[in-house]
Computed example of a mutant assay.
Amino acid sequence: MSNSEYIFTSTQHSQELERLQALEQVFDPATRKKIESTGISAGWRCLEVGAGAGAIAQWMATVVGDNGSVVAVDLNTRFLNNLRSPNLEVIEADIRYLPLNYPLFDLVHARYVLIHIPDFQVALSRMLDLLKPGGWIVIEEPDFSVARAIYGEKDALESFNRVYEAICQMFAQLNLDYAFGIKLPAIFQQCGLQQLSVENDVPLSNGGSGIAKVMKMSTVQLAEKYISTSVVDSTDIDRYCQFADDPQTWAIYYGTVGVIARKGHL
């Protein structure tokens, strides 16, 4: 199994918390709708993999109520220590090695997790092993293959596209797939999952929008990794960040593929 480090592990505490909270603000509404489509209700047991800053885990704990429970798993639980729900358990662990001695879950959810794991099959298999027959799995993953600058100053457009190339190169160097999201439906089919539902969100966004802010934060935090690919320099990073701030610019920053499916009965 690969033990490659999560790309945001070494980022500064306050910057990473701000990025995760911005990501929640942008993507949690759509995530909640996907989870609600499974019929989640009081009494369910739910597993949140890669809980981040904890908003979705906290929300699920509220939905399932006192008779339900939520387990939130993350490699680093530094942003989950303030969660306070009697039916919410926080575990610092790698999902690939999480023991199978838990009662099986009615629902497993993960967002932007598998793209960071070279042997994602191991992680996904563990999630499915922890899911009861008839239970639901909801996975959301990014697809950077759709990213491109649309409108802005020529130099800024060129820098945007070079940063995109650096992102792809960084993922390749880590043995990761920058277009992982778009492969997710086929992966679910190969796992024999049922009642497959696919959503593909590819927003065209102007500078200053939520997704532009999230990508600017990511670019600031990962600038050294991008520059180390030799595809971009500090000027490109600066122009990208200015582009992401400018409401007159337009781009596709990335897409998100969400797949909802049910584990078959034995």
Rank of each mutant, 00 (worst) to 15 (best):
S159E: 01
K183T: 07
A149H: 03
E141Q: 03
P99M: 10
L128C: 08
V73S: 00
C168L: 15
I182N: 08
V163S: 02
G134R: 10
A110L: 11
R126Q: 14
L83N: 01
S145V: 12
Y97T: 15
H109L: 08
N76L: 11
G192Q: 02
Q121R: 14
V113G: 01
R78I: 09
E153C: 12
E158S: 10
L157K: 10
L83M: 02
P133A: 09
Q121G: 09
D74Y: 09
K154F: 15
A123R: 00
I150W: 14
V163P: 00
I137F: 08
N82Y: 15
Q121M: 13
P142W: 10
M127V: 07
P86C: 13
R78D: 12
I139Y: 02
H116C: 06
A147D: 05
P118T: 02
R126D: 06
S125I: 07
D177Y: 13
R111S: 03
A123G: 10
A166Q: 03
A147N: 06
A110F: 13
N101E: 09
Y178Q: 08
Y164N: 11
A110C: 11
I117D: 00
Q194G: 11
E140D: 11
A179L: 10
L174P: 07
G135V: 03
K183S: 13
G134S: 10
L100N: 10
E89L: 14
W136V: 06
R148M: 14
F144E: 00
Y97A: 15
F144W: 15
D143Y: 11
F105N: 00
Q173R: 12
L131Y: 04
Y112Q: 05
L130H: 06
A166R: 03
E141M: 07
V122L: 15
V146D: 06
V108Q: 00
L107G: 01
K183V: 07
L75P: 00
P118H: 07
Y112N: 08
A156R: 09
I182Q: 09
I150A: 13
L75Q: 00
Y112C: 09
A179I: 04
F171R: 05
P99V: 06
E140R: 07
V122C: 11
L157R: 11
E158F: 12
E89W: 13
H116W: 11
L104C: 08
G192I: 03
N76K: 08
F79N: 01
L104N: 02
L98F: 08
I167M: 12
L80T: 00
H109E: 06
N81M: 09
N101G: 05
A110G: 12
S125R: 10
Q194N: 13
I115V: 15
V138E: 02
D143Q: 05
I95R: 02
